[in-house]
């Protein structure tokens, strides 16, 4: 009887020790969770505070007129017409230049390039290019596009500069999307006698399209907010006219003069207004900033939507 009691006591003691041990382990869970929440909140709250501060200042200025007016010396008449049109056209050029170049380079590196030291060097450098400060691209573009090629301080120059800037993003996104395709799918195509190009065209590119488009849009969302390289190539800060429209009523119906037109973009317009002393221009800057943030968020939402739509049919 005595032996049994001792046994039970021993058992209870062991259990107590075990529970104490688990409790002490769980204290660390609680500790890390608290630290994690703090870290998360720091970032999110900072953004939310900034956004609301900007919204409070800017929302009253966001009227249809704000989108339809050119900049003006009088803050209450000033708008972002030339800025958002300029941003849109520059993004168009950027996308048209970056997508074929980036996707082509990514597909080549992943599917065609032989594995040797040359491609290793190129691969490392493509990744490094993503970290080059954007103003350096601006300097490069000033020398190459503006002076060497004589493209001037135009929409074309800005679009090509930003295309260079996001090219690494597009290349890396393309390669990652391609790598996500299982080897078995690729081998399945080759086993039916497909050539490299047939495999690439019929399988690799379509199946990696979701990832590629996501990368492109995220790249564009970065490019739309870029200020430094655009200033470097000499975008004007005060533009009170629109570029010639790309389509016209008379033959040949399309017009490429807009490519060579001077321009401004959203962040430059914003930068211009923030440097003015009058309070009213600060409100304009806040409103333009709000529009820019919303444009970026919409682009990111679009990226998520496209990814979801295109990946719906692909399961692996």
């Amino acid at each position: 009887m005595g032996a049994t009691t001792t046994g039970t006591d021993l058992h209870a003691g062991k259990l107590r020790a075990l529970r104490a041990l688990i409790a002490s382990h769980k204290r660390w869970d609680l500790f890390f969770a608290s630290v994690g929440v703090l870290a998360l909140m720091f970032g999110i709250l900072a953004f939310v505070a900034l956004f609301f501060d900007m919204a409070v200042d800017g929302v009253p200025r966001i009227t249809p007129d704000f989108f339809a007016s050119f900049p003006s010396r009088r803050a209450e008449n000033a708008g972002i017409l030339s800025a958002w049109v300029g941003s849109t056209l520059v993004m168009l050029v950027t996308a048209l230049a970056a997508v074929p170049l980036g996707v082509g380079a990514g597909v080549y590196l992943e599917e065609y390039a032989p594995r040797n030291w040359m491609t290793d060097v190129i691969e490392i450098n493509v990744t490094n290019l993503a970290g080059v400060p954007s103003i350096v691209y601006g300097l490069l573009a000033l020398g190459l596009f503006v002076y060497q090629f004589g493209l001037g301080q135009s929409i074309l120059t800005a679009g090509l500069t930003l295309a260079l800037l996001i090219l690494p993003v597009v290349i890396v996104a393309t390669r990652e999307a391609i790598r996500a395709i299982p080897v078995a799918i690729r081998e399945g195509a080759y086993a039916l006698g497909a050539s490299k190009w047939q495999t690439t065209h019929d399988h690799i590119i379509p199946y990696s399209m979701a990832g590629i488009l996501t990368g492109v849009i995220i790249g564009l969302a970065r490019a739309i907010g870029e200020t430094a390289p655009i200033i470097t190539i000499g975008a004007l800060t005060f533009i009170a006219f629109l570029p010639p429209p790309p389509v016209q009523a008379t033959a040949p119906f399309v017009n490429f003069e807009w490519l060579t037109s001077p321009f401004t973009v959203m962040p430059i317009q914003m930068f211009n207004w923030t440097s003015r002393p009058e309070e009213a221009f600060q409100a304009n800057a806040a409103a333009a900033g709000l529009v820019l943030v919303v444009m970026t968020l919409v682009m990111n939402a679009l990226a998520i939507y496209i990814r979801y739509r295109l990946r719906r049919n692909i399961k692996w």
């Binding site: 078995a184 799918i185 080759y190 006698g193 399961k315 692996w316």
Partner: peptide
Amino acid sequence: VRMRISMVFQKPNPFP
């Protein structure tokens, strides 16, 4: 060679 000799893989690998 692959056009003359076909192959079926370990895991079903239909194209999407």
